[in-house]
């Protein structure tokens, strides 16, 4: 059966580490970098569990800084 796989990219320069995408993600894919920070000192978001992403766009929709691009592909 075809399975939908998703992935996101985070614009780490724009990201302010507000954590709203992490909360919005229904599949616990995202997390904030525990140690790494960007030039402005924010712990930016990243895909901590990429395999779980379904490309639902919830994270991107709630992101106030339009940092997230979402990709989706049907796995045959």
């Amino acid at each position: 059966m075809a399975k939908i796989r998703g992935a996101v990219t985070v614009n780490t320069v724009r990201c302010k580490g507000c954590n709203l995408c992490v909360v919005a993600c229904p599949c616990d894919v995202l997390a904030l970098q525990p140690k790494e920070v960007n030039d402005r000192g924010y712990h930016y978001a990243y895909m901590a569990q990429p395999d779980k992403c379904i490309g639902c766009q919830s994270c991107a929709l709630v992101c106030p800084d339009a940092c997230i691009e979402v990709y989706r592909k049907v796995e045959q």
């Binding site: 796989r5 998703g6 992935a7 990219t9 614009n11 490309g55 766009q57 991107a60 929709l61 339009a66 940092c67 997230i68 691009e69 979402v70 990709y71 989706r72 592909k73």
Partner: peptide
């Protein structure tokens, strides 16, 4: 394999 322009469904 997923992160390709043709698969993009949301962007700024």
């Amino acid at each position: 394999d997923i992160i390709k322009v043709e698969n993009r469904v949301y962007k700024k």
